[in-house]
Design a protein around this nucleic acid. Structure first.
Lengths: 207, 207, 207, 207
DNA sequence: AATGAATGAGCGTTCATTCAT
DNA sequence: GATGAATGAACGCTCATTCAT
């Protein structure tokens, strides 16, 4: 049972107490991740074979599996980074004091992130078996709910739905926006295009 | 005299001038289609092998390929039937005289159709390489544009966007709705859930 | 056993005593043949499916099999036409009185025919399972043997080999010539290129 | 450190620095190759399925594709070995000092090789899409040109053609010889039969 | 920490051929 | 004379995954 050596869980402490092996390990894992994402963005998820990722990353197949459970794990990791991205930029994007404005700014930030990731990643994320969307405890989701709750308490957001209900409503629309953009191969500016939708959502929040 | 080698295009004339062979052929094609859709709805697109469809339909693999170019062709055919469905039910669903109401009724009809088709079909249709959405001349699309144009002429729909602009806006949202429903495995009633979105869209149309 | 209607053997008599059906039959068969050869020349033997031939010829698959046993039968028929071609042009190409010259002229005619047929046909004829070459009683073969026999009797061709031995020797070289030309996609003029070989053969015949 | 993901290129160094895995890998590849060649020689190229090769070699299909891109790759590898064979035996076959004799000996060696390979291999190599013939930088080709060049410089070979021209001329004939032998299922001794052709070529070289 | 040889079920697809009509 | 629906064995090939080293 204990045949498999335990995968080296990403350590959060960035203290200098890292052996050279640990440093190399981190480098290797990042190398794999970056190449994989690049390839997936370029040629699509399904058409990117693990073998190809390994070849490009100058890493053996065994090494790939040492760090990731499979191809999907790569995408999942990327997806989780969305949270980090949102965290990192929240304070610089969400600056208003008006709750509805804050929601609008936050949604714009989310769409900005989608635009940065690119078409193929979106198409892959918005894909049948990917149920990552549904992780209710994700930062992105809970942050949005918090913003809405604050708005409701302050009185500028309707109590027509619960915060969770509003969140779902909003996510549904934004997914439609991202998906349409990806379907059309990103041939228009998603941030501009999303404006109208965000505007409309804001109106609805107030109603 | 009517010389043709393959894919016997569905003939529109249902005149009795059909030989027994032609009748059998039609039956066979329908048989394949029905079984295929059933299986895809039940166990998903990817997990439905052509071989399985054939076995269930009591038809050889060769016969399958005689009628369809592949698995995707089945789904495409289904998709094209959406138009027929919308055409057939338009008059019984779209009954109001108010333009905005007419749009709402029409969108409800569309969501009704989505609900009838089922999760897997939707997931498959909402798929990267499927650019069927974009066929601007589809009945569904042009009908929607017409309804909006009439509303604009009559004055109850805003001229903020062109009919095509509105159409795209609306389709984007509805796709989000359908996609969310499919992602959540159809565990809620899509028609009820879509109500709020349609309501919101209607408000926005009037603005 | 007698289930299959007997294929209508090409009738040689072109007497007007042909029914309209026989005329149509001949037209159909020729149609199939011409299209088939065209396609094979264009896209190669292996890549030309019977289905495609039928589609282009506006003929059903059944009809194809009514006239030909299969795809190879088409090529065989073409091959047999070589004899007819050689017969038809013999008198205008082979005009010398000197036996060795006559052989040279005859070989030039043969190469001329090869050049007319084109690369793909040659590649197909020079193909593993095609043993048509070996039919010793073909006109082309016997004619060549006759020319050599006459040369030996007249004294200007060496008796080093029997007529059949010479014939085989010559055919071997000419096949090499035709094959090289086809391999190089017919990018040089085969008739010019064959000159040296024919010259050399002629010298050897005299030795 | 030597990171590589697939097709482990045959390493030239036969140093004992091979791990047991590498030795086994080499064995496996050779096993596949040998079985494949045996089967192709016995039952023909087209009739030899990859599946059969694998079964006989006690190797999975995946393993086959790990080492070879496909069936043709096996034949290509064999073909490339011709050069090695010619190199290895050159000194023991080409022993005369007379240039024309040297060419004759060299051609005899080539035909000897053809005889060793067998009918099916030849038929497969002499095949339409196989453009390996044309690799002008192959050892076999350049060696022949060298021999001719030396003969021209020494004065015993005609300058009627360039070395390359002579080479092509000769190759054309030898291919004809090999092809005829293969077509007749190797039912005669190719080396004896080629004698006359080589003789004739030699005469022509001197002319 | 890293390797890479080995797996093999399973895939979609082709196509010459038949025969009842 | 002509049709064309139906066949199905057989094909080459992919790829995520494992595990002894």
């Amino acid at each position: 049972m204990a045949k498999k050596v335990s995968p080296p869980e990403q350590q959060q402490n960035k203290l200098p107490g890292l052996t050279s092996r640990q440093i190399r390990a981190r480098t290797t894992k990042k190398q794999i991740f970056d190449i994989a994402i690049t390839l997936i963005k370029k040629q699509g998820y399904a058409k990117t074979a693990i073998k190809d990722i390994c070849r490009k990353a100058s890493v053996s197949i065994g090494t790939f599996y040492y760090y990731y459970q499979g191809k999907q794990a790569i995408v999942n990791e990327l997806y989780l980074r969305a949270d980090q991205f949102l965290k990192d930029h929240f304070n610089s994007w969400v600056v208003s004091s008006n709750p509805v404005e804050r929601v609008k700014e936050y949604l714009a930030l989310y769409i900005h992130f989608v635009g940065l990731e690119g078409v193929d990643i979106v198409l892959n994320i918005y894909y049948p078996s990917n149920h990552l969307f549904l992780y209710e405890n994700r930062y992105m989701i809970t942050r949005l709910e918090d913003l809405i709750r604050e708005g409701q308490e302050e009185g500028s957001i309707s109590r027509k739905f619960t915060p969770q209900g509003w969140m779902r409503y909003i996510i549904t629309v934004l997914r439609g926006v991202a998906f349409d953009w990806a379907l059309r191969s990103g041939e228009y500016n998603i941030e501009e295009s999303a404006q109208a939708h965000i505007e409309c959502l804001a109106d609805y929040l107030r109603s």
